[in-house]
């Protein structure tokens, strides 16, 4: 697997999601041209039947869960409202960013006034009264921009590297506590429950809730030798 960031234009050539991150000089023109060329085949972009069917199902589950007109049949489908959209819509290898727009669209769609206007309040730092530095990952596992999940008996979280700095955030969504998943391609943490995502440093990136969930609590993190350590509540035996 390649660790080096793929150029946007290469992603288009390979029919892969466009990687996140600021483009290099000249990238944008090449990318735009590559995108335009993709349409040269008159039948380009017709969706697969499989995708069309899966999205229809997803919408049925979504609309059933959202409105009072939900039908019993839709409610009765086991797990229908808990299927992560990405797992449903994309194959395991086709994970991409791109859920953007939901928050933005709420004003356009006549949503009930959530979104950006209710700016998320900071959740601050998770700083236990009785804490210990605990090694959670080898330093070698954290290339710049990479992240890794850790889990102890008290806290689940993610450590990531930003240049020389290491940071750690809680791994539980601040909406209802669902455990976040690392979306490595998009460099963010996705909530499997309600289409909410956070940046690796804990900021709320987007959501589809009435009010923006607060950012993720941060934890103290440091490099210690060849380990990444996080300051966590002391475990009781």
């Amino acid at each position: 697997m390649r660790r080096r960031r793929r150029r946007p234009v290469d992603a288009v050539v390979e029919d892969q999601p466009i990687p996140a991150g600021p483009p290099e000089p000249g990238d944008v023109d090449l990318l735009r041209t590559a995108i335009e060329l993709r349409s040269a085949d008159p039948g380009a972009g017709v969706p697969s039947e499989e995708f069309v069917d899966r999205l229809r199902e997803r919408l049925a589950a979504d609309l059933a869960g959202a409105g009072p007109g939900a039908s019993a049949a839709d409610h009765g489908r086991p797990g229908a409202e808990r299927i992560p959209r990405r797992a449903l819509l994309a194959g395991a290898g086709a994970v991409a960013a791109g859920v953007a727009g939901v928050v933005l669209d709420r004003s356009l769609l006549g949503g009930s006034g959530g979104g950006e206007s209710q700016a998320a309040r900071p959740s601050g730092e998770l700083d236990p009264v009785d804490g210990t530095w605990v090694a959670v990952a080898p330093a070698s596992a954290l290339a710049d921009g990479a992240a890794q999940r850790f889990s102890t008996s008290t806290v689940t979280g993610f450590v990531s590297a930003d240049g020389n700095e290491v940071r750690a955030v809680s791994g539980a969504c601040t909406h209802q506590g669902c455990l976040l998943r690392l979306n490595a391609d998009a460099g963010r943490l996705d909530c499997p429950c309600h289409r909410t995502a956070f940046s690796l440093d804990g900021k709320t990136l987007f959501h589809q809730l009435i009010a923006a969930p607060p950012p993720l609590p941060r934890l103290r993190a440091r490099r210690a030798g060849d380990q990444i350590e996080v300051f966590l509540p002391t475990e009781r035996s």
Partner: peptide, 15 residues
């Protein structure tokens, strides 16, 4: 036609 790849096009369509 706007993003040139299927995974992103599918995500955006769903969105």
């Amino acid at each position: 036609a706007k993003v040139g790849n299927r995974p992103d096009a599918e995500d955006l369509t769903a969105e």
